[in-house]
Write a protein that binds this DNA or RNA. Structure first.
Lengths: 339, 339
DNA sequence: AAACTATGAGAAAACGTTTTCTGAATTAGG
DNA sequence: CCTAATTCAGAAAACGTTTTCTCATAGTTT
């Protein structure tokens, strides 16, 4: 059959021609902006329907100077935390008719700035979640990314809103919970060294040390994945700790699994805490005691900040801090009596 | 300070002016397309650098007639399966310099067609994952979405590539596995009735029934979430089945958790199988026996099909079927001897 | 040395919209 | 009944690029 013909996409011009009116009128009808003769409106509408006219978004964006799209940069799409954030942003933005372009830096922090820049050029704004990017680079990039909302990261610049989690407080709450249960020897399985949120946890633990000089606390290098936790069994056991603060739920689950394989009972012999309260933290055996981070809300808030930036920009940019909430579950229990 | 000034974004015109050349030359230099006098090139480059020129992607897209972006429509961003698919597409597309716009229909199937249409208008193509959309609607929508790649769904139209999973075979493999373990009374906890993949499973089980007339198989209505599984404990126990085929891993995990609360031992008293092999299926206690769906690969393949569609379109559109792979793990075991 | 061919820079058209501006018609007011 | 104000359709400019086309210049060839 004829395949070459009618190949060109139908544009506003075709509709105008068919309806016997001008481009301007078609545009007006389609956007319902100005009053236009009902007769013309009807003609345009039917012409558009007959031709199955779909307005071209790119042309529209160019004329309007906006894309109704924001970019979200995340370090790793496989990580439940960032998935949750993305989902929160996406749903909230959709409510206001905005779409989300994703940029997954695949944990390659050198890519982050490039991706963020590219996203910004295609979108009206960027939500940046780049825990590993160093401060100087971020500072330099900042102006060219605006409107920008930072997640899990703050900056000297007061103009850009940021949503951060009080990891320091959260880890102190978890440690206090363990102490309360009678644990006196703790270990912290730390995350990626350069990660901002890892630093925050370390600072929190420093404070904890000052407040609880009698408690022994060892810091172990680890990572942020299930595998990192799974591989840390030996070093954890080496410390003799009865309470382990894992960097996050993923690590805790890995550790849990590793200890299980060794026949070590959790929480009877060792108590474990996670961080984040990812959806599955509740479903491990035993369920994970953790510090819950309202990650969906954070994503939603990130959008709200962005919307403010895109709109009038009325109020001051806000710098919200979210307090993690302790969830006591089965993975922590009373310390075993020193035999 | 001066804030109103220098407000306008710097465009190609500014660069041309500063370098003392024409727009055309700037464009040529920026894209490195044609040979251009080294002296001019240098002038342009330094001008661009001084002004910190960032080419406007929308203008570029309009001129080029392409956005280097594809849309991905998923029913639920909270579902690990779709997360995996999205990630696969996103990473593969990024390799080829493409970006992904996400459209989360939040399980509202009436939104799917609208979202898909909107995504298409903003992008060069659409990867559609809409298990609930009815056949007629899909068929009607098809032409306006092209280039289109269907995931987990096929259509009469041979032109649009599709990536499907052989759920029928997978569920038969799982059932056979249970039979092999000595189970004679099975239950299938079905998913959303209208879901295409649920239908495929039911068909597979019909075949299984024919092949194994001696096995008793009850179909129970359920859902696709953890909660659905968790809430099905009673109806499952009511069937007296010793082997349960859950719609997917999420449902299986919910069921597992519910049975655990009731003090029912898995797999000693009841064996459970999932479907998909989501990342956490391996980390439950006991780990889930399941039919592994290579969801990341599917996403990657979806991109490859899309790339073909966007490119020369050389070969025939392919309709790939992925075979789930049985993963024997701890949640299934020998049937208890009838006392 | 003259004519012809590369080479490459600039002017202008194109992409598909929205919106300002212009001008004609219609209505209201004096 | 005529002028002024108002409404609304169409022409044209604008958004920011890329690319075709035109033309001048420099380089080759006879």
């Amino acid at each position: 059959m004829a395949r070459k013909a009618a190949n060109r996409r139908v544009g506003i011009t075709d509709v105008a021609q068919r309806a016997g009116v001008s481009l301007a009128s078609v545009s007006r009808v389609m956007n319902g902006n100005f009053s236009v003769d009902p007769d013309i409106a009807a003609r345009v509408r039917s012409a558009a329907a007959e031709l199955n006219y779909q307005p071209n978004a790119v042309g529209r964006s160019l004329a309007l100077g906006k894309t109704d799209t924001i970019g979200v940069v995340v370090p790793d799409l496989a990580n439940p935390t960032f998935q949750g954030m993305l989902r929160g942003v996406s749903r909230a933005a959709a409510q206001d008719g905005y779409r989300v372009l994703i940029a997954d830096s695949s944990e390659v922090s050198s890519e982050e700035s490039i991706l963020a820049g590219e996203a910004r050029r295609r979108c009206d704004g960027v939500v940046l979640c780049a825990p590993r990017m160093n401060e100087a680079e971020l500072e330099a990039l900042l102006p060219s990314l605006r409107p920008l909302v930072l997640v899990n990261r703050s900056t000297a610049d007061a103009e850009t809103p940021s949503l951060v989690v009080d990891y320091g407080q959260g880890v102190q709450d978890l440690a206090a919970h363990l102490v309360e249960l009678g644990h006196t020897t703790l270990a912290f399985l730390e995350g990626p060294e350069r990660s901002a949120s890892n630093q925050a946890r370390l600072q929190g633990l420093e404070k904890f040390r000052v407040d609880n000089p009698e408690i022994q606390l060892t810091v172990l290098s680890g990572g942020s994945s299930f595998e990192a936790g799974h591989g840390s069994v030996d070093s954890v056991l080496g410390t003799g700790a009865t309470g382990v603060l894992a960097f996050n739920d993923l690590v805790a689950m890995g550790l849990l699994s590793g200890l299980h394989e060794r026949g070590i009972d959790v929480p009877r012999q060792i108590s474990i805490t996670g961080f984040d309260d990812i959806p599955f933290a509740n479903y491990t055996t035993p369920p994970l005691t953790t510090a819950a981070v309202p990650i969906n809300d954070i994503g939603e808030q990130a959008w709200h900040e962005m919307r403010r930036l895109l709109g009038d920009g009325g109020d001051e940019p806000s710098h919200t801090t979210f307090q993690p909430e302790l969830r006591r579950r089965g993975s922590t229990g009373p310390a075993a009596r020193p035999q």
